[in-house]
Simulated assay, not measured.
Amino acid sequence: MTGGLFTFGETMGLVAADGIGPLAYAGSFTFGIGGAESNVAVGVARLGGHATWLGRVGPDATGELIRSRLGHAGVHVIALPDSSFTGLMVRHRRSGEFAHVDYHRSGSAGSRLNPSDLPAASLREAGVLHVTGITPALSETCRAAVFQAVETARAAGVPVSVDVNYRAKLWSRFDAAPVLRDLVARADIVFASPEEAELFVDPGDLLGGLTKLGPTEVILKDGGRGCVARIGGERHTVPALPVTVIDPVGAGDAFVAGYLADRLAGEPPAQRLHTAIAAGAFAVTVPGDCEGAPDRVELAALTGGDIRR
């Protein structure tokens, strides 16, 4: 899909306990899929953009579900077959305030992604290459694939988007910081929470520190406080929308999708950020990683207070 979003990474099966409380007392579970990069691809597609996701999947029902769900969402799927299993995560809401996730992904199909899997022509034709800080943590070959993709895109003049997305269960702050700093230094667009940015820049000036590394579009996602950004030298502050939070998981990916969808559509920075905030707000009102990604009509209803009859 020429001119659209190109992204890649590991998408896993998701076993989610229904309700809130200890896992031992969960009475029922929902099975779905989840992955930061594919969540963004779904979000962009739902907002009318072209999105391609690439990843390795195993010879199992979970791998087939990933192909099916992403394709049904309008994403162009490049699911590379692998002899290993498709990764799995198990999530439960221990309380209304936080979720707990266990990963079963060591040696998975997704972790075996390597530079030779990446189609150079597709990277050169993309409107934006989007990568995250999760993939470099999965394996040495995954890390090499991310940096090769970034360099291929940069050489072709394709904007590179990076969501820092630090995962403490995958690697330590000590191991992650230099890799994430190097990745951000090669990006045009960077998304991070304040806590993630503090891994490798001065906490006293997060926007300035990230900008000095090289990106021209720096966006700090700050949950219920909204976002602050510096884009083309101009500072923007956008408050969060007041909504009832059902499930906070996936809000950050929806935010990124909203911003990138509008960027691909040629919208100005302020509009991109407002769409990002609205998409993130919409996502927390429904359960699941990417199931709540809104379309344009739903976003308009959320921001305009419209009632669909």
Score class of each variant (00 low, 15 high):
residue 31 F to D: 00
residue 13 G to T: 07
residue 49 G to F: 11
residue 94 R to I: 05
residue 34 G to H: 02
residue 28 S to K: 05
residue 70 L to G: 10
residue 41 A to L: 03
residue 113 L to C: 05
residue 48 G to W: 11
residue 86 T to D: 13
residue 50 H to Y: 06
residue 99 A to C: 04
residue 68 S to Q: 14
residue 80 L to G: 05
residue 119 P to L: 02
residue 46 R to P: 09
residue 26 A to F: 13
residue 87 G to N: 00
residue 74 G to M: 10
residue 98 F to P: 00
residue 87 G to L: 02
residue 86 T to E: 07
residue 29 F to A: 08
residue 84 S to Y: 13
residue 20 I to G: 03
residue 43 G to Y: 14
residue 72 H to M: 02
residue 96 G to R: 12
residue 30 T to Y: 05
residue 97 E to I: 00
residue 11 T to H: 04
residue 52 T to N: 03
residue 70 L to Q: 10
residue 39 N to P: 01
residue 98 F to H: 15
residue 53 W to R: 01
residue 62 T to I: 15
residue 39 N to Q: 06
residue 110 G to S: 09
residue 57 V to I: 15
residue 27 G to M: 00
residue 102 D to V: 11
residue 115 P to C: 02
residue 110 G to Q: 01
residue 58 G to C: 01
residue 29 F to L: 13
residue 75 V to S: 05
residue 14 L to G: 01
residue 111 S to K: 02
residue 109 A to Y: 07
residue 43 G to A: 11
residue 61 A to E: 14
residue 91 R to W: 01
residue 60 D to R: 03
residue 116 S to T: 14
residue 115 P to H: 06
residue 102 D to S: 09
residue 101 V to Q: 02
residue 23 L to M: 15
residue 112 R to L: 12
residue 87 G to R: 01
residue 16 A to V: 07
residue 26 A to R: 05
residue 82 D to H: 15
residue 46 R to W: 11
residue 42 V to F: 14
residue 50 H to F: 07
residue 63 G to M: 04
residue 15 V to N: 01
residue 112 R to I: 06
residue 101 V to N: 04
residue 60 D to H: 06
residue 33 I to H: 11
residue 11 T to K: 00
residue 32 G to I: 02
